[in-house]
Simulated scan of single mutants.
Amino acid sequence: MTWKNTNDRWGSVSQLLHWLIVLMILGLGTVGLVMTEMRNSPDKIQIYLLHKSFGLTVLALITLRLLWRLYAGAPRPVPGTPHWQERIATLTHGALYALVFAMPLSGWVLNSAAGFPLRWFELFNLPPIAAKSESLHELAEQVHEWLFWTLIALALVHAAAAIYHHVFQRDATLARMLPRGWLRAPATSPTPPLTEEHRDVA
């Protein structure tokens, strides 16, 4: 496994960032749905603080992942993939990037409009990005929730497409976003046999 992306598969850095962001978003979403129903208490305040800190961490990670992708490039489409599927995949990836950026940013606006300090894991404060405003707070709260459900819906479509490619298209779309050997492309994959010069990056 190489650190950088190759023409045939995602490298270890991209894989790590991808799955780490996925897990963090799932955790943040679950905690976010639960914490709003909790009674006011020191525990609830602490959970909110952690939720904000991990949200900011996701913002940093998605920025890092985008910069890494610009630097390392992306694998070519799996051979045999129709052009319309390539276009949909490109649009879906772009929308996912935008939503993952927008979620923590909307939370930052929400926190700023409420007039609360924003502290990252009790280490340092971040400046507000909006003035205190009750109307903006209510709007940001609605947008934050709407973005979350939109992100979840699109992520499910993205995951379903990857599974479809593995089970029905029988290609390496899903396998190349996992560490080598975790999931192999089916034997009848349309991907042509690798030449000797590419075997070490497949």
Rank of each mutant, 00 (worst) to 15 (best):
Ser106Leu: 01
Leu17Pro: 13
Arg199Met: 15
Pro128Ile: 04
Pro193Met: 12
Leu28Asn: 06
Ser14His: 12
Ser12Pro: 05
Pro179Val: 07
Gly32Asn: 13
Met38Thr: 08
Ile163Asn: 01
Trp149Arg: 15
Leu174Ser: 10
Ala102Tyr: 03
Thr36Ser: 13
Leu136Gly: 10
Arg199Ala: 15
Leu151Gly: 00
Val13Ala: 05
Leu64Arg: 03
Leu91Glu: 03
Val31Met: 05
Lys4Met: 01
Ala172Trp: 06
Met1Cys: 00
Lys44Asp: 01
Asp200Gly: 10
Ile163Phe: 12
Leu151Asp: 02
Ala113Ser: 11
Met35Val: 04
Leu99Met: 12
Gln169Asn: 13
Glu134Cys: 07
Leu61Ala: 07
Leu56Ala: 15
Gln85Asp: 14
Ile25Asp: 04
Gln142Ile: 14
Phe124Arg: 08
Leu178Ala: 08
Pro190Phe: 06
Arg199Asp: 13
Phe168Ser: 09
Arg119Glu: 09
Asp8Cys: 04
Asn125Leu: 15
Ser189Lys: 09
Arg184Gln: 13
Leu61Pro: 05
Ala187Tyr: 00
His18Leu: 04
Asn40Val: 14
Val31Asn: 04
Ser112Met: 11
Leu139Trp: 08
Arg76Thr: 10
Phe121Tyr: 11
Val167Lys: 15
Gln46Ile: 02
Val109Tyr: 02
Thr195Gly: 11
Gly107Gln: 05
Glu122Cys: 05
Phe168Lys: 15
Asp171Leu: 00
His158Met: 11
Ile62Ala: 05
Leu194Ala: 02
Trp19Asn: 08
Gly27Tyr: 13
His198Phe: 12
Leu126Trp: 07
Leu178His: 11
Phe168Ile: 12
Phe121Lys: 00
Leu61Ser: 00
Val201Ser: 15
His18Glu: 06
Gly29Ala: 11
Lys44Cys: 04
Trp149Glu: 07
